[in-house]
Lab assay of single mutants.
Amino acid sequence: VDYIVEYDYDAQHDDELTIRKGDIIKNVKKLEEEGWLEGELNGKRGMFPDNFVKEIK
């Protein structure tokens, strides 16, 4: 499942992704941690907030 970024987010920890509006995040999975998703961007896998992105259908 792929998501498109709607709002910029700067990573706060090493396991998070810095994302920018218009980025496409690939292979996204829901995490047990409420409010977070995990996906791949530019060869890096990491977490990001689910309210900054929208699923591409």
Rank of each mutant, 00 (worst) to 15 (best):
R20G: 03
K54F: 06
E34N: 10
N27T: 08
E38H: 08
E16H: 10
Y9G: 01
V53F: 03
W36G: 01
L41V: 08
T18I: 04
L41A: 06
H13N: 10
E6F: 11
Y7W: 09
I24W: 05
D2T: 15
A11T: 04
M47E: 03
F48W: 02
V5W: 01
K57Q: 15
E34Y: 09
I19G: 03
E34A: 13
I4R: 13
E16M: 06
E32L: 13
E33L: 14
E40G: 05
K26P: 01
L37Y: 06
I19L: 15
R45G: 02
E32T: 13
K29L: 15
I24D: 01
I56P: 03
V1L: 09
G46Y: 01
Q12E: 09
F48I: 15
I25Y: 00
D14Y: 15
Y3K: 03
D10P: 07
E55G: 04
K57G: 15
M47A: 07
V1S: 14
E40K: 06
I4T: 05
D8S: 14
V28Y: 02
N51G: 09
V5D: 00
N42W: 14
G46F: 02
V28F: 02
N27G: 08
K54E: 13
D10G: 05
K21I: 09
E40N: 09
V28S: 07
G35W: 04
I19D: 00
V28E: 00
K54N: 08
E6Y: 08
D10L: 12
D23M: 15
N51S: 10
H13E: 09
H13M: 10
R20I: 05
Y9Q: 02
G35Q: 04
A11E: 05
I19A: 06
L31I: 12
K57T: 15
K44V: 11
E40V: 13
E38Q: 07
I4E: 07
K30Y: 09
I25D: 00
D2V: 14
K30N: 08
D10M: 12
K57E: 15
T18P: 03
H13I: 06
W36S: 02
L17T: 01
V53Q: 03
D8A: 11
D14H: 14
G43M: 12
K54S: 14
G22R: 06
K21P: 04
V1W: 06
N27F: 15
R45F: 08
R45W: 12
E6I: 15
I19Q: 00
I56K: 05
I25A: 02
E32Q: 14
H13F: 11
V53H: 03
